[in-house]
Every structure is written in C-alpha cells, then in structure tokens.
Write a protein that binds this DNA or RNA. Structure first.
Lengths: 151, 151
DNA sequence: CTTGAAAAGAACTGCCT
DNA sequence: AGGCAGTTCTTTTCAAG
C-alpha cells in the first residue's frame, strides 16, 4: 500500500477517464511539467498501483449483444472441485470474468453471447455441464455505468 | 456491427492482454508492417469496436482490500424511481460499477472499501439509505480472473 | 499489401535548482 | 520533489512499388 498526494489522485482520476492521454497533456491538467508528470506515472506504475492499461471493447459492435451475469453455487466444494471448476469455466470462450466470491453464490461469471438463442446454447452446453455445478442464477445486463471509484 | 478477419482478431486479443503495445510490436506478432498494423487499429477505433483504453488500477495497492458485489431489489420500480436510484447510487464514491439487470435483482453494484468495517459503514449509511431500495444481497470478492472473451 | 521516409509528438535521460 | 534541454522512440502521414 502506497500513499498518494492530491496530484497523484488527480492523475489517476484523469487517466481513469482516458488512459491514452500523454504525460504532457496530463501535466497541463495538474499543473506540472511533462517530465515531472511522467515520473509520477512511472512511480505509480513501479509501485503496482497502476497495474496496466486494458482495452475497452464494444461488444455490441462486435456482434455480442447479450451480456449475462451468472451466479453459480457448487454442489461439492472441496479444494479439488474449486480448481476443476475454475479450469473448466476458464476454457469457455464466451466467459469474460470469473469471480470467486463468498456469500449466496460461490462464483460470479460474466458471459457474452450473440443473442439470447446463442446464450441458451452456452448455458445448456457449456455452463450446466461444468464439473460440480449446482444452482445457477442469471441476470441479463440492460445497461452499465462505470465510475472511477475511490482513489 | 463490423466483420473482422483473423488478423483483426489477433490484434484485439494481443491488445486485450496489454493495451500499451506499439503498432510496430503488434505488427511483428501478427506478421504485418507498422503502417498496415496502425491502419487496422485506426479502422477498428473509427468503427467503434475499440472504444478506448482504460486504466487497470490495483485496489489492494491503493488500500482498498475489500470488493463486494451487491444485488439490489427495488421496492418500487417506476420510471422515476429507477432514475432516482441510479442518480443516488452514482454519487457514492465507493461505487465502481452500476449494472441495471433483468432477473432476480434489479441492480448489481460493485463496491470497494478499505476493510470490512469500512464496507459496513458504506452499506449502512450509503446503500441501505438509497431511494427505493428493497432487498440487498452481498457477495465478497475472493479472487478474480479476466479473460479476453470472444472476439 | 509492402518499403522507405519525413514530421510531429510522446517517451525517456541527465543535469541543475 | 520539480524544471529544462536534449535524445530516442512511436505515432501519423505520405509517396511509390
């Protein structure tokens, strides 16, 4: 854990909006020179706070109009079955995220599909046949808003 | 919706791993020259498929060790109450994503907190006091795996 | 599609306050 | 820490094959 000042926070917030901004442009925002801004970004990266830059893909534009969140309860939860389940679920191409959670469900899975018929195929042939799978609950994504969160 | 060839798919997959790669480096991976690779990336960006680049922040390193997924059922779901709820939930700084979903819950919310005591504060003072909120279910994140998904 | 080149801009380095 | 000046690399655009 690292302690950040206000300028670091402003940089992370600005980069959260658009990670393509240059050190010079960011410097103009926070009132620093290009090298000073660059050094701060490097410090944050070396400290592991800034873990990388990821693509933001438009799944609709790619033809995947349906996103579904699945809550999965395992029938048997030994150490082996967790690993078996994780390995099998990671092999499903339609799976975007696998979250191991504590609560009403054991796993939360984000699945994308071309349409509802395609989703049904993934659910029946891929998800319901996973090793150790028990109850499955589904929530279809209608809209999504992302926020920077606390920094 | 746009149709992509194998090289476009390889580019998106490589960029999904690490969005900082240069057009030249990507070209070496997919077997194209730097200008050809750059033109393809520009084409994908202009088509809206590549919607942007986002930061990958390490919340643990920032001192936010607890991530919780909340499933929220609204007590009253008129058009007005949805908008009231969304506006209020977006104003909570600890909220990272707000997903309007169809199913057992009305909203799925991703919340980060410093620790479980901090999360309890957010839950009691911020979440439970949201306008129109009914049942709330919580799942604590243990571990997470992200995959490129189908491209 | 390729190669080659050129201009602009961004990333990175060293030195100095 | 930050600024300045300079170097290297990437981006971005072009022309020609």
């Amino acid at each position: 854990m690292m302690d950040l000042d206000d300028i670091d926070r402003a940089l992370l917030r600005a980069l959260s909006e658009d990670a393509t901004q240059s050190a010079g442009a960011l410097g103009r925002v926070v009132g620093l020179s290009q090298p000073a801004t660059w050094r701060r970004i490097k410090r944050l990266t070396d400290a592991g706070v800034l873990a990388g830059r990821r693509l933001d893909l438009d799944r609709e534009a790619l033809g995947f109009g349906v996103t579904v969140f699945l809550g999965v309860k395992l029938a048997t939860k030994g150490r082996v079955s967790l690993e078996d389940f994780e390995r099998a679920v990671s092999a499903i191409p339609e799976v975007q995220t696998v979250e191991h959670v504590l609560g009403l469900y054991d796993y939360r899975i984000r699945v994308v599909a071309r349409d509802l018929a395609d989703f049904e195929r993934v659910l029946r042939r891929r998800v319901m046949t996973l090793p150790g799978v028990g109850d499955v609950e589904a929530n279809v994504l209608l809209s999504e808003e992302r926020r920077p969160g606390p920094i």
